[in-house]
Amino acid sequence: MRVTAEKIAQLEEIAYQIRRLSLEMITCGRWGHVGGSFSLAEILACLYFHELEVDPQNPRWEGRDRFVLSKAHASPALYAALALRGFFPLEELYTYCELGGRLEGHTDMTRTPGLECSGGALGQGLSIAVGMALGFRMKEQPYNRVYCVLGDGECNEGQVWEAAMSAAHYHLDNLIAIVDYNKVMAKGFVWEEMGLEPLGAKWRAFGWEVLEVDGHDVEALLRVLYEARHVRVHGVPVAIIAHTVKGKGLRETEFNYKWHTQAPDPEQADAMLRQLARNYGRPEEGYSKLNDPVAKEKFYGGE
């Protein structure tokens, strides 16, 4: 496959916007997961702006590919990707975690256009993805794919391995799992909390084809997604282990479990967003709601 420089630049810009919007949402919503959203930015950019067959004008289109965010705490990144792709207005992102809004803290498929399942209890998404992949087979839709993004810490859950075993048993070569291997869990490093290595060997032993990639290298991600979709071994599901950096993009958030769940205050967010812009060589841009009296009142006048 050939990837143009323009394509790469476009996806890198989308990834930057996903980070930026995630931090805006988390600040405005006063809750959310910065680290796990930032680590996923390039993966979601590549999926929603290159790989997935979806139609934002018709989110329930029968012929669409399915995407399952099993690590549903990275919802800000997913909502940002969906909004950028046109599923709902960008301005709606600022209703994240708002009572009565459509963007729940953890995903609720009954509220948000473009969501394929609900989540938040770790370990459940891959099973749902297995069901979707079986569904494609039973409905004779061989060209569709199911993508499921799991967290690394999530792979501690036994259900993940039940699902992995079953996907290989059913020969689901229309299923692609992507592990966002950002090395950090909620309260510490993966190897301190519960070691995963050898992670690739585990997926292989469960009957999966395993591809490893730098999850922040857009060109490499496109190649590995292409391989998973088109060059795969017949009858075998594919696991992409995406090596990422939790909190990727800012020195203070990278590999820092303290930014697993934490909302910056507006001034802090402003500084972080300016730094993010500098780090990615973008025009400096602060927190868009910094001087918005409503957002300010919400932040300081609330709980």
Binding site: R66, M109, E116, C117, G123, Q124, G125, L126, S127, I128, A129, V130, G131, M132, A133, L134, G135, F136, M138, K139, G158, Q159, E162, A163, M165, S166
Partner: peptide
Amino acid sequence: AEQNMFGIAAGLATQ
């Protein structure tokens, strides 16, 4: 593997 079975059921229901 009941946990997986109910998840698969959920996925099939979405289809």
